[in-house]
Nucleic acid binder design. Structure first.
Length: 282
DNA sequence: AGCCAGGGTCTGC
DNA sequence: GCAGACCATGGC
């Protein structure tokens, strides 16, 4: 386990001596689009229809206004806290490139997001940039998500998105992805696309099932399986990961790390995008 | 101003 | 199977 003890402190929960968890790198590395930095090492976001603000003080991770029940029910899983990242990062460091990447961007965990949110988010992500993706998703939630109080909205349900008109979705800025979102929401709502089996379906079959959805190709399918279903052996190959593979792994990605390729990819993606000279943009 | 963005579809070879 | 046009939009 990566943390020694969970204690209540007033209405907060404190995870003492948390290791291998860099809040900023994890919440702002292109895997989730719903988190905002309030200050250094202090973030606010929404997942599973719950608001959460959390902060890192010294070696302690503090979840504000969270009950132990909610922690066990939602956040332990969401932040993948039951996985031993210490052991995993040690394993990664056996690879020279990953050792450099981890030095540059330590503590990136792969979040376990809700399947339908991941499905929609990464349809929206295609041929798009992260800043604009965040804006579109924020507007989508405000327009169609459950109101949680204040300016907080849950990610919309399949019902809500399937019922949205084309013009409403276009006004949000979805552009040509409008039809893709509508189709995906309708498929999930009708049961034509059953998400639950994707947790356990064989890899090839799971990828093919998602690729059968209009607007989903191999890259988006891998993102949905990795971020929405914790299928950490999937490596989404966008332009950055293609550069990484071509330039840093000409002989192929290490076979022994393949079972955690999706987690390794997240560190490498952040490294390639943010470390000057890590990869060439040609 | 023009290129690019965590791509996919469709058409034509 | 692969190449290229095309897709909406706005960040930078």
């Amino acid at each position: 386990m990566d943390y020694s003890a969970i204690k209540a402190r007033g209405s907060d929960l404190v995870l003492h001596d948390i290791q291998n968890f860099n809040l900023g790198n994890t919440l702002d590395c292109g895997q989730s689009f719903r988190w905002k930095m309030l200050a250094e090492n202090r973030y606010y976001g929404i997942a599973h229809s719950r608001e959460l603000s959390l902060s890192l003080e010294d070696e302690n991770l503090i979840l504000h206004d969270v009950t132990p029940y909610e922690f066990e029910k939602i956040w332990r899983g969401y932040f993948d806290l039951s996985r031993d990242y210490g052991e995993l990062f040690t394993r990664f460091r056996g690879d020279n490139t990953l050792a450099h990447a981890l030095d540059f961007a330590p503590g990136i965990r792969v979040l376990r997001q809700e399947p339908f949110e991941a499905l929609c988010s990464f349809i929206i992500s295609q041929n798009n940039n992260i800043t604009r993706i965040k804006g579109i998703i924020a507007r989508l939630c405000a327009a169609f998500g459950e109101h949680l109080g204040g300016e907080a909205y849950a990610f919309p349900t399949p019902q809500a998105l399937a019922a949205a008109t084309e013009q409403q979705l276009r006004d949000i800025g979805l552009g040509y992805r409008t039809a893709y979102i509508t189709a995906a929401a309708q498929e999930v709502l009708s049961g034509k696309l059953d998400l639950n089996p994707l947790y356990i379906m064989p890899p090839k079959q799971a990828g093919e099932r998602l690729c059968a959805v209009h607007g989903i190709g191999k890259k988006v399918a891998a993102c949905v399986l990795l971020y929405g279903f914790a299928r950490v052996d999937f490596i989404p190959e966008d332009v950055w990961v293609k550069r990484i593979m071509a330039q840093l792994y000409p002989a192929g990605f290490p076979q022994e790390l393949a079972p955690w390729g999706g987690i390794a990819q997240q560190t490498l993606f952040h490294y390639a995008r943010n470390c000057e000279g890590a990869v060439e943009k040609t």
